[in-house]
Design a protein around this nucleic acid. Structure first.
Ligand SMILES: [Zn+2]
Ligand SMILES: [Zn+2]
Ligand SMILES: [Zn+2]
Ligand SMILES: [Zn+2]
Lengths: 130, 130
DNA sequence: GGGATTTTGCGAATGGTTCGCAAATGAGGT
DNA sequence: ACCTCATTTGCGAACCATTCGCAAAATCCC
């Protein structure tokens, strides 16, 4: 009955390596294309299943983009922080800001709302795209 | 050749009235269900087309939820502000905060990023759900 | 009311994501 | 290395939200 340990498989390693070298949110299709470019033949189903696994493990952040396309990035949402996203190339950098927490704290009780969390995204241009 | 003025139609009025009385983000399907409950027979296509129109006019805010389902709310994104969203019932209230702008300003140049915008969502429980 | 134009409903097409199942792979023991 | 068996993969079908094409209905204006 007991479950064995998770298997280490090539598709999973390949997918992880794609994510590891891209500092931006990628869709399942983009990851799949990256694998093909690397000559790694992996089905789209496996890409989706692996992404689900990574999300369950808390290793990636999932973000539906403006059109509702779901995108993924290697970044542990475990540690609360925010992102600066380049409008031009999509590069993402973490923004870790105590000042923001302070601000959120001051809003904790707003309009009858009992606030317990927040999400922030900053937009702009990264150093390379300026 | 010139375009005539936009038509005022019942489907559009019905859809607008659904949106006007719901202070929360609704999916196209939810709006469609609301119309049926009101006895208003409108096709889902028309719901989508009307939402596209409202978005083009800048009358609604469009927000893909965590699963990527696109949702809509009567709220002009023209005036920059943020939202407090009840985790329990979905009720949304506007958060208009100069302090946040100040904070964003101090981050304008972060890690080589030239920041020019930001989006914030606050979560918690509304007065009714406490 | 009549006619030009816009809007609607319907059903088909699309695109992203999920499922079911047989074949392939990985881990562990011999 | 080989065998065994649970896990994972690939494939195609299924699914769901959204978009399209086009004929019929509604709106506006005279
Ligand atoms: Zn950039
Ligand atoms: Zn991050
Ligand atoms: Zn509530
Ligand atoms: Zn608002």
């Amino acid at each position: 009955m007991g479950l064995r340990a998770d298997y280490v498989t090539r598709p999973r390693e390949w997918i992880a390596s794609i994510l590891a070298r891209e500092p931006r949110f990628l869709s399942a299709a983009q990851i799949h294309q990256g694998l093909e470019r690397d000559g790694a033949r992996v089905s789209l189903s496996t890409v989706y299943r692996t992404l689900d696994r990574l999300q369950a493990k808390g290793d990636i952040t999932v973000r539906p983009d403006a059109d509702g396309e779901v995108t993924y990035m290697l970044c542990e949402p475990r540690h609360h922080h925010h992102h600066a996203i380049c409008r031009t190339c999509g590069r993402v950098e973490d923004v870790d800001c105590a000042a923001m927490e302070q601000f959120a704290e001051s809003l904790r009780a707003h309009n009858g709302f009992e606030l317990d969390g927040h999400a922030i995204e900053f937009f702009g241009k990264c150093g390379a795209c300026r």
